[in-house]
Design a protein around this nucleic acid. Structure first.
Length: 912
RNA sequence: GCCGCCGUGGCGGAAUUGGCAGACGCUGCGGACUUAAAAUCCGCUUCCGGCAACGGAGUGGGGGUUCGAGUCCCCCCGGCGGCACCA
């Protein structure tokens, strides 16, 4: 990419315009309170998922989504909207802390360097962010409000009747004690088994475990005191309130799945008389209708009743089994799920519906964390119970009739009940209702709803995160005063982990121990905290008194409510998007926010995959050669288009055969052909660096190419030839207006004229205004670009180009290629900036044709095309169709049964 | 296993939502310009037959609805993503 000649001087003008935009604050967005604020303008909020500023800089995936929002933002601005289009940094995070650990340097320094690099890269791409609104989650002013929100959560509880959060001060007023209140806060401390990673020196949320385990870190279960947020109270609202959002169905589904509602019943089992205990074992089941088929019970190995009920002769076996389970991580439990394991406790329970004594087992296929940590096992109609019963020879009793031809053993579908007393003959849903009512009447259980969602484990043992605004005294926690915020972490001598679950901050004893004898909380918040509310801060970033002013909120987030367009990757489908919704709802309940949901419209961009090389192998001289295409011919597969020159006599045009998913050259087994694109990764060596692309092709070309790859939501492989194609397109636009003189300088093209436009050019320009506008609204940037290509091709082949028409094309192209269009705008002597020019309007009458072409089909097959006046009556159209020579050939010897005329499109003559 | 998304040329993808399948771009082939190359411009490029006119086949496979299906319905096959002993 070094000495490539520039087809147009983007390298000169792109940085020029970037400098000017910055100088002139071209992207500044006035808001409520600013002198130049115009409240009458409609608003549009186009939001990107802000990046974690990693040391490796921007990846091409970032500018994909960012270009999309940038185009929409620039388009909406031209349409007269006041557009909020901000950028910031999710800057707390483990890598900066790792760096600090190695260098002894404060993470703030490394973070700042990375941010500067990211900002440079983003500015290089010409995004129209209002940099005055930049936020950084590590700024003390930002941390202050993150901690403030935590205190709001800490100081509230969930009112079940109202289904919303309320301040705990209401409970105080009712005379509740601090102890009682601490039990119901939305932020609470619990001693529970958590995911502790010795390698990372921190505890992880359930949601994070898989990600780190996949990276090779070990994660253990350990009982620790941790801060939790009561997100489970919002489970139902988080499901229900998804309905009205304009989000991809798939993402809604992922969230619903993650929350995992299931409807069923609780059932209480008492112990057999021999146990000599009044204890009840409660289970949750989605199939109460199969209660008669419950032939044994299973408790999770950690279930609190296990010790009490285990009989003397089973004690050793049970204790051993519990020990072996305790050392297994979630991951190992998962891997070992091929075979079931378990041990009988020796105890028995009584099935409430038929008074049968059934054995109680413990097994690790029952999780303590879901439901009650105990199940009734119905081996006939549950796959897992069936497998377990088979292995340990437990009785299997059919209680649901399976359809003809299906084995009843392990049948989990609906059917009619049998062997179930009064339920016999009832359909599964009816049986569920009947038995649930019976359980309730007899105080043996009730209808119940269960969620997979667990409370959010909110504390970390890291340094580089927000400290909790909490102190401890006499074993109780207290909020610090709001005017003490932000509470910042002290500098440390070194950032090495303590090696045990003791947080890093506990090293700073002066900071930790307060004069009154209380101690500061030493945990910090997870990285999610800052990203949960950044979209709010952009609305009013400099506000020292409030999170955001009421005016800013009304103006930016008012009608229709929330962020208008939020674009980002699917990787945040559950975590970030669920957490942010949760915080938003709490703040809404407490009256700090006015709308229920933060993000009205969400779009997930697809992945950009690595460039596909169809064939890679060594040629006769031993150098690596790649082919760009493989053609399938009747003779076999033929390689075409080498990426590097190759000794032609060796391999060009050589035939290869297909073996599995790759191609093999008969006498050269080292040849390999990849058919599928792979994810970009350092290890595969297929990462595309935006800096390189901008150097070789310019920022506009990169922006256009990213948008031209295909629909935004879809993944597609990178293709350098495609970038060349886009670059050629931009060069053609350039050459419509510019030509080189004898000295090689670019001067205004002689083809540009001031005359009135002719019909053909007028038509394609107006069609383009219409289509490009509609396509931007639908986020179909690829087709908008093809339309502009067609328009440009029409200009290229025209002898004269009316300036007024070319101006329109520049205006359409401006949101996509802001530098090129601005440069041409200036060189053509137009006033002001191209970006400030209103979006052109189109004239419907310019689109109408006098004469149209219609397709003529005979029995549904295209046989001819006729040209006919646009307003022709149906009879004329039919007559013209019948008169066509080829049509007559195909009608010969047939009788016309029916003629269908679709105005402006086609005629179909049905004949036999 | 369950849930979700998706299957269109050599490739990325279009197709006004039931109306000309393959727009636009890439690749490839041919041509013009050039001493030559690059760049640029022009033509062809779904497959089969044909010099052509044209004909036939064709949107993962099979069936159906319809004058007409890439698009709607049913069944099957394949790929991708998520969850995964969730009772």
């Amino acid at each position: 990419m070094s000495a490539r000649r520039k087809p147009f001087p983007f390298d000169e003008f792109e940085s020029k315009w970037q400098g000017r935009w910055e100088e002139e604050k071209a992207f500044r967005t006035p808001g409520p309170g600013d002198e130049d604020f115009d409240a009458s303008k409609p608003t549009f909020y186009a939001l990107d998922m802000f990046p974690y500023p990693s040391g490796s800089g921007l990846h091409v995936g970032h500018p994909e989504g960012y270009t999309a929002t940038d185009i929409v933002a620039r388009y909406k601005r031209k349409k007269g909207f006041n557009v909020l289009h901000p950028m910031g940094w999710d800057a707390f995070g483990l890598p900066a802390e790792e760096h600090a650990r190695k260098t002894g340097e404060h993470p703030r320094i490394n973070t700042k360097n990375n941010i500067d690099n990211f900002r440079r890269q983003l500015q290089m791409l010409g995004f129209c962010y209002d940099w005055d609104r930049e936020v950084n989650t590590t700024d003390p002013e930002y941390v202050k409000w993150t901690q403030w929100i935590f205190l709001q959560i800490y100081n509230s509880y969930f009112d079940e009747d109202a289904q919303q959060a309320k301040p705990v001060s209401e409970l105080e007023a009712k005379g509740w004690s601090k102890e009682q209140i601490d039990e119901v806060r939305l932020a609470y401390v619990a001693g529970a088994p958590v995911n502790w990673s010795p390698d990372l020196g921190t505890v992880l949320a359930n949601e994070e475990v898989a990600e780190w385990e996949a990276k090779g870190y070990t994660v253990e279960r350990r009982p620790l005191q941790q801060w939790m947020l009561r997100i489970t109270k919002y489970a139902q609202r988080l499901i229900d309130e998804l309905d009205d959002l304009d989000w991809p169905e798939g993402i809604k589904m992922l969230q619903r799945n993650w929350i995992g509602r299931s409807d069923g019943a609780s059932v209480k089992f008492s112990l057999a008389p021999s146990a000599n205990s009044e204890a009840l074992i409660e289970v949750f089941t989605t199939r109460p209708d199969t209660l008669f088929g419950a032939t044994y019970m299973v408790l999770a190995p950690e279930h609190p009743l296990v010790d009490e009920i285990t009989t003397a002769d089973q004690k050793d076996a049970v204790v051993n089994y519990q020990k072996s389970c305790a050392t297994k991580s979630e991951m190992e439990r998962g891997e070992l799920n091929k075979g079931k394991s378990g041990v009988a406790t020796g105890a028995h329970a009584i099935n409430p519906v038929n008074a049968e004594e059934i054995p109680i087992w413990i097994a690790d296929y029952v999780m303590m964390g879901y439901g009650t940590g105990a199940i009734m096992a119905v081996p006939a109609h549950d796959t897992r119970d069936y497998e377990f019963a088979e292995k340990f020879s437990l009785p299997i009793l059919q209680v649901v009739e399976a359809p003809e031809g299906e084995d009843w053993q392990g049948f989990t579908g609906n059917g009619s009940a049998m062997n179930s007393g009064s339920l016999d003959g009832l359909s599964t849903p009816e049986a569920k209702k009947t038995i649930t009512a019976w359980l309730q009447e007899n105080d043996r259980g009730e209808a119940q709803i269960n969620y997979k969602l667990r409370d959010w484990l909110f504390s970390r043992q890291r340094y580089w995160g927000e400290p909790f605004p909490i102190t401890w005294k006499d074993g109780r926690h207290f909020a610090i005063a709001e005017d003490e915020l932000p509470l910042l972490a002290p500098e440390l001598e070194d950032y090495n982990p303590t090696g045990d679950p003791e947080p890093l901050l506990s090293k700073a004893s002066e900071w930790v121990n307060l004069p009154d004898g209380s101690r500061r909380e030493t945990n910090t918040m997870p990285q999610w905290a800052g990203s949960c509310w950044y979209y709010l801060r952009y609305c009013d970033p400099g506000n020292l008194e409030q999170l955001l002013s009421s005016e800013a909120q009304d103006y930016w987030l008012g009608d229709p409510g929330g962020v208008d367009l939020y674009i980002g990757g699917t990787e945040h489908a559950v975590l970030h998007l669920l957490y942010a919704r949760f915080w938003h709802k709490v703040l809404n309940d407490l009256g700090h926010l006015k709308m229920r949901e933060p993000f009205q419209k969400l779009v997930n961009q697809g992945l950009i995959m690595g460039e596909t090389e169809y064939a890679t192998f060594r040629d006769g001289e031993g150098s690596l050669v790649s082919f760009k295409s493989v053609a399938e011919t009747p003779q076999g597969f033929v390689l075409k288009g080498t990426s590097t020159p190759l000794s032609k006599e060796v391999l060009s045009g050589e035939e290869v055969t297909k073996k599995g998913d790759h191609f093999v050259l008969a006498d050269n087994p080292s040849i390999r052909v990849r058919e599928k694109a792979e994810k970009m990764s350092k290890s595969r060596g297929n990462v595309v660096n935006p800096d390189d692309v901008v150097n070789a092709y310019g920022a506009d070309a990169l922006r256009l190419y990213l948008m031209f790859m295909g629909p935004l939501e879809q993944s597609a492989p990178w293709n350098t030839n495609g970038v060349d194609g886009i670059s050629r397109f931009l060069a053609r636009v350039w050459r419509v207006a510019m030509e080189q003189n004898q000295e090689g300088e670019w001067v205004r093209s002689a083809k540009l004229v001031e005359e009135a436009p002719g019909k053909d050019l007028l038509k394609i320009v107006h069609a383009s205004i219409k289509k490009v506008g509609e396509d931007i609204e639908r986020l179909r940037f690829n087709t908008a670009i093809s339309q502009m290509m067609e328009c440009t091709n029409a200009f290229t082949s025209a002898k004269q180009i009316p300036l007024t028409l070319f101006e329109n094309l520049l205006s359409l192209l401006n949101p996509f290629a802001p530098h090129l269009t601005e440069e041409l705008w200036e060189r053509l002597g137009r006033k002001g900036r191209c970006m400030d020019r209103a979006w052109p309007s189109y004239d419907e009458s310019a689109l109408v044709e006098n004469e149209i072409e219609m397709v003529v089909q005979v029995n549904g097959k295209v046989r001819s095309k006729i040209k006919i006046a646009a307003e022709s009556p149906q009879s004329d159209i039919e007559a013209a169709a019948h008169a066509d020579g080829n049509v007559q050939v195909h009608l010969e010897g047939k009788t016309v049964r029916k003629v269908i005329v679709v105005p402006g499109r086609l005629v179909n003559i049905v004949a036999n």
